[in-house]
């Protein structure tokens, strides 16, 4: 009886160990990135102060986190508390707000893209912070360049969202002029 219970306990512990090991292996393989061994030969020599680079990357990562939270909150307010609500009022008042609805929809899509791209960038940044820079400098450098590219994509997303906000405001001003014009016509 004792032997059976011992076997069951060991089996459970082994299963837990296998699951944890699989998780850590998958995390580690993600850390290695998608670089091929031949990519490391792209650069003949790469020199960097690994400690300094990692420290500065850590600082950038912390600043980015705050920026992501601030911008995310701002975009949520813009979409849920302003655009959607004005669109709802336009429909209630039976006005023509097709352009505003279209831009709001584009904004929502661009916001989702920003979230996805930031997650990808953040994962790459975390991989850089965890990776061993000293033993694999060339690969680390290539990963840094890839992360820089992902950051550029996120930066472009921020620009796209800013443009859409401006377009929505321009469309709002047009609608406002139309409402005022029709009010004047009614009063005459």
């Amino acid at each position: 009886m004792h032997r059976i219970s011992l076997v069951i306990s060991i089996a459970a512990l082994l299963l837990s160990g296998v699951v944890l090991l699989a998780h850590s292996v998958s995390a580690q393989s993600g850390e290695e990135g998608q670089l091929q061994p031949a990519d490391a030969a792209l650069y003949e020599s790469v020199t960097m102060d690994c400690l300094d680079v990692k420290y500065k990357l850590g600082e950038i990562h912390r600043t980015d986190r705050l920026l992501r939270v601030t911008l995310g909150e701002g975009y949520d307010n813009m979409s849920s508390n302003l655009m959607d609500r004005l669109n709802s009022r336009i429909v209630q008042n039976r006005l023509d707000g097709g352009e505003l609805v279209r831009i709001a929809s584009e904004f929502e899509e661009a916001h989702a893209t920003f979230r996805e791209n930031y997650t990808e960038y953040d994962d790459a940044m975390l991989d850089l912070l965890k990776a061993n820079c000293q033993s694999r400098t060339q690969t680390y450098y290539l990963e840094l360049q890839e992360t820089k590219e992902l950051r550029r994509v996120v930066h472009e997303d921020v620009g796209t969202l800013s443009t859409l906000m401006q377009r929505y405001h321009d469309a709002f001003k047009d609608l406002r002029q139309e409402i005022e014009r029709s009010a004047e016509e009614e009063s005459e």
Partner: peptide, 18 residues
């Protein structure tokens, strides 16, 4: 925000030769 220049090599004291 998220300007890619912040990850440039020069401020990080990185040099790479192809």
């Amino acid at each position: 925000g998220f300007a890619p220049d912040e990850l440039n090599d020069e401020p990080r004291n990185i040099s790479a030769e192809k």
